[in-house]
Amino acid sequence: MNAAILTTERLVLTPVDVTDLDDLLALWSDEDFTRHITGRAMTSEEVWFRLLRDLGQWSVAGYGSWTMRLADSGAYLGNVAILDHRRLIEPPLTDPELGWGLSPAFQGQGFAAEALRAALDWTDAHLSGARTVCMIAPENLASIRLATRVGFRPYATTTYKDHPVQLFERPRKDRGEP
């Protein structure tokens, strides 16, 4: 499967690339951004390994993390991803997992929903599975609202790496379904 470029009305989503490193370093060092994901800013070493992981997932699985940029200016907004992290979690995440992160400077403008819908459409068209799933920290109310807006519903509460998380699922949509 070739890496896909997705476009929406306002965004261009391209598979993550090594040229995204500076933007990723800026994003992952922002404590407002990382608060609900890692709980702390990431070091340059951690961001580099994260980038290598994301690059590798594209080559191994044929899907992965997309870099989100504004179509008109090329400004970096964040990312949306289909994940296969093989997390050690109960219940296990056996279906495609969606994840997303948007720079605080661009939040509240509908960009994350636009990108997430494009990634979900791609997932439904190209991957098997009866559903997609996501994992959100219970205090991350903005991401919970977004997940609900695009069709996810809670199905379990559990812990991951000693932190409580809410698991959500979204049934796969067949082509032509609204």
Rank of each mutant, 00 (worst) to 15 (best):
P171L: 08
Q109D: 03
D162I: 02
Q107S: 08
G176K: 01
R69H: 02
F49M: 15
E9F: 08
C134T: 05
L83S: 00
R53N: 12
D174R: 15
I89C: 05
F33A: 12
S143C: 08
G176A: 10
L146K: 06
A26N: 06
P178D: 09
Q57P: 04
I5P: 06
R131H: 13
L11S: 04
P104A: 11
T14Y: 07
T38C: 05
V80S: 04
L146A: 10
C134R: 00
H126Q: 09
E97F: 00
T158R: 12
A75K: 14
L98K: 03
T34D: 05
A61N: 12
P91L: 03
R153Q: 14
V18R: 06
V47K: 10
N2K: 10
L88Y: 06
T43L: 07
T123Y: 01
L77R: 09
E177M: 07
L83I: 11
A81M: 02
G176S: 10
R175V: 13
T94A: 11
Q166A: 15
R10P: 09
D17R: 14
G176W: 02
P171Y: 00
E177C: 10
Q107A: 04
I136N: 13
F168A: 11
T94F: 02
L77Q: 01
A113I: 00
S143P: 11
V133G: 02
P171A: 12
P15H: 01
T67I: 03
P96G: 05
G108L: 09
R149I: 06
G62P: 08
R10S: 03
L21V: 02
P178R: 01
D17Q: 03
L120K: 00
S128C: 12
D22H: 09
G56N: 04
W122G: 13
Q109F: 07
T14C: 01
L102C: 08
R117S: 12
T8V: 01
A4W: 00
A130H: 04
D22G: 02
G110D: 00
S59W: 03
H163Y: 14
T14L: 01
R87P: 05
V150S: 08
R87T: 06
A4C: 06
V47F: 01
R40E: 09
L70E: 14
V165R: 15
S65G: 04
R86L: 12
N2E: 07
R145E: 13
F168G: 04
R145S: 13
D121V: 07
V150Y: 05
D162H: 08
Y76L: 11
A75P: 05
D72S: 15
G176Q: 06
H85Q: 10
V165E: 06
A147R: 07
L13N: 03
A119R: 03
T7Y: 05
G176E: 07
L55T: 02
L55P: 09
V12P: 09
L55G: 07
S103H: 08
L25E: 04
S143M: 14
W58S: 05
E90T: 11
D32I: 07
L127M: 06
D84I: 03
H85L: 15
P91F: 15
E9H: 13
T67P: 13
R175L: 10
S143K: 02
A75C: 10
P15S: 09
T43S: 15
F49C: 14
A71F: 03
L127Q: 12
A137N: 14
G101I: 00
W100D: 00
